[in-house]
Amino acid sequence: MNPSRFPLSPRALLLAVMLGGFASSSYALFGDDEARRAIIEMRQRLDGMQQSQQRMGEDNAQMRRSLLELQSQIEQLKADQAKLRGQNEQLLRDTSELQRNQRDIAKGMDERLRQFEPMSVNVDGQEFVADPTEKRDFEAALAVFRSGKYPEASSAFTTFLGQWPKSGYASSARFWLGNAQYATRNYKEAIANFRSLLNATPLHGRAPEAALSIANCQIELKDNKGARKTLEDLVRNYPNSEAAGAAKNRLATLK
């Protein structure tokens, strides 16, 4: 057998040398059969040791592979955990954004609903509940009057009273309608609207002015007798009003 075909480790080589020495001496101590058995046993032990070392090496390699695989699994778990954490944070942001949008939508809906809800208003000393559209229509007609477009204002207030006959704005609307008609010299129609105000709401904030306006219309119509009676009634019914003071001055000059 050529030893170079089976390279040995230093330890195995030492054992071989020892085995060789043992074999040489065994010829002196034992017979050929005993020496041969001793050599075979020694070789079997050596083979067992080599097999054990080989198994240990294989076990170590398997352990290293297992550790590497475990480390890879740990890294993958960390990556998955980081991904899940990111997804959770994004979900929280999305949820927060959704809740904020829902609040904004609800707020917008509340504001839009409030636009259609009746509201409490106070006009010319009269407090009442008005529909938002009703309020808008009255204020629009009044804006036309204040712009000096009296024919258009007369039409706007007439339309308003037709659409809202029971409105809390009705007396104020008749007052401004009468003024628009006075400005366009529709004195009889103006008188009719001022009288409607006085008959419906004699304690209205514009009532003294309405009475004074009736007298002015009567003077324009050359009805001085009727104007005098209207002015006297104004001073008697609304003695503390500014209109009453103007009525006294008018009576002093009225013939």
Rank of each mutant, 00 (worst) to 15 (best):
L221A: 10
R206Q: 04
G86S: 12
S96E: 14
R250L: 12
G57F: 11
L13G: 09
V17K: 07
G57W: 11
Q76L: 09
H204W: 05
A252I: 02
R185F: 08
P118L: 03
N101K: 06
L197A: 00
N224F: 04
N240R: 12
M109T: 11
S213D: 07
H204Y: 00
Q73S: 14
A183V: 06
N122Y: 01
Q44C: 10
Y27A: 13
Q44A: 08
I39K: 02
A183R: 13
D131I: 10
A35K: 08
M1P: 09
A246L: 10
L98Y: 05
C217E: 10
G226L: 10
A28F: 09
A35E: 09
A192V: 05
A252C: 01
P7Y: 07
S24L: 14
V123F: 04
G57A: 14
D47F: 09
Q126M: 07
N186T: 11
D131C: 09
A106T: 02
M49P: 05
L19I: 09
A247W: 01
A82P: 05
Q71A: 15
N240S: 11
L161K: 01
A244M: 02
R93N: 04
R37K: 10
M42L: 15
Y169H: 11
A106N: 04
A16M: 08
G57N: 11
M49Y: 13
S66R: 15
K166Y: 10
A16Y: 01
A12N: 11
N237T: 13
Q54K: 15
A210W: 00
E111P: 07
R195Q: 15
R100P: 00
R114Q: 13
K166I: 10
S26R: 13
A130E: 02
